[in-house]
Amino acid sequence: MNLQQLFQDFNPSKFVVHSCLLIFVAFFSLRLDNHIKWSYWWIFAPIWVWKALVILGATVGSYVWWRYPHFRLEGEAYIHYKAMLISLALHLILLMFELLVCDKLESGRHLWILVFIPLIFISIVSIAVCIWAVKHDRSFELELFCAVNVLQFIFLALRLDEFIGWSWEVVFVPLWIVMCLALVGVLYTIIFAGILLRTPEVNAQQRRSSFQTALGYTFLVIPVLIFQVLLANKLDEDIEISHTSVAIPLMVSFVTLILMSFNSKGGNKWWFGMRKDFCSFILSVCPLLQEYGNIAYHSERHRNGVELEQQSEKGGHVVRRADLFKPVLPIVSIELPD
């Protein structure tokens, strides 16, 4: 067990977002099937938690930014801080859309086209944000998703208000196009991983990394495509199936995203004013965790055909050690009181 290897690329932002979305999808599907009778304001509770963490993280990060001016000289601090503010602005607009959706589902007093206006606006703004992110080598998953689906959001609003009478399979045409491109990307990763597995010059780590990437994208894209097919047929009343069954493939994709967050590099270091990777911050705050993280445990009996053991004569007894301990993190001394 190597704690450093497990958490060194951990992305807490993606973990929180995808976990909240997974819980929300589960609640929403159960509510549509009338398995639970909660108000939609409670159904959207995971979304509110997500947005509350974003607002709190940006507030604390801004306080640290203005309270300690010398922190601004650390590397690319200005770019990280700008990225955090841009992300906060987009999340606030997205929060406005989510509040309108929840109110519409609860009271039904708005047109869907009015509800989707913030989402359409954020989709247009996301195009400029994506350009800025590429220029400054920043990640932009949420912005890219909104930018490529602006036409889809318009179709959804018009169809929900019955301004157009198209079948749902036609309404989802923009999303079909995006999914086709995603399938091409998945096919490329699978072929690339197969080539690396058959290439003896490639080391084992690269083969393992390419295989994990192909496996992750496969379990991410294929379930979303299945969910889209089931949803379109469900809305067109071509099949009789519960909303929970329709949502299961989508939940599989979110579980995949949660697992992939443990191997997702990047993340903004100014959320909550941490100014460092999440793992390093947690270890610096909790020295006891660092003590545990300093040790990787291995249980090996043989290495190159030789048994790993230490024998010493101590009063006629033989001492054998099969478990090896090696430090994997910088050891920080902790002074304990006498």
Rank of each mutant, 00 (worst) to 15 (best):
S39A: 08
L151T: 03
Y63N: 09
P46Y: 05
L73F: 09
I120N: 06
W38M: 13
I122D: 11
C146T: 11
E162A: 06
L73A: 12
H70R: 10
H110M: 12
N149C: 04
R109Y: 04
D33S: 01
E106R: 04
W132R: 01
I47L: 05
I79L: 14
I47V: 06
R72A: 03
Y81S: 03
H136Y: 15
H70G: 08
K37I: 05
L73E: 11
F71W: 14
A89Y: 10
F27L: 09
F163L: 11
K82F: 15
I164L: 01
V54C: 06
L114R: 12
C130D: 07
F71E: 14
P69L: 00
G165E: 11
L111T: 06
W166S: 03
S62H: 05
N34D: 11
Q152K: 06
Q152E: 07
I47G: 04
G61M: 00
G165T: 08
I55Q: 02
A45E: 12
R67T: 10
Y40D: 09
L105A: 04
G165K: 02
S107D: 09
V54K: 07
A157N: 01
A89P: 08
W38H: 15
C102N: 07
H136Q: 05
G108R: 00
L53M: 00
K104W: 10
R109M: 05
G165Q: 06
V134D: 14
P118F: 00
H110L: 13
E141Q: 15
P69Y: 01
W42P: 12
W166Q: 08
L151R: 01
L142I: 15
D103P: 04
H35C: 11
I124K: 10
L156M: 09
P69T: 01
G61H: 00
F28E: 07
K37Y: 11
D33V: 00
L144S: 12
D137G: 07
R67D: 13
F97K: 02
Y81F: 04
F27N: 07
F163C: 10
E74H: 15
V64G: 13
L142Q: 12
S29D: 03
V54M: 08
V129K: 13
E141R: 15
M96K: 13
F44A: 15
L114F: 12
Y40L: 07
F155I: 08
Y81A: 02
N149Q: 04
E106N: 04
H35S: 12
G108P: 01
K135G: 05
I124R: 10
E76K: 08
A147H: 01
I36D: 03
S87V: 09
H35W: 12
M84E: 06
K51Y: 11
I122F: 12
I36M: 02
Y81M: 02
F44P: 14
K104V: 07
F44K: 01
I122P: 11
V115D: 02
A58L: 04
R109L: 05
I86V: 05
L53T: 00
G57M: 15
L119K: 00
I120E: 07
H91V: 09
W50L: 11
W166F: 09
W166M: 03
L156T: 05
K51P: 08
R109D: 05
I131V: 14
L156G: 04
L32F: 03
I79C: 12
I55K: 01
F116N: 03
I36E: 04
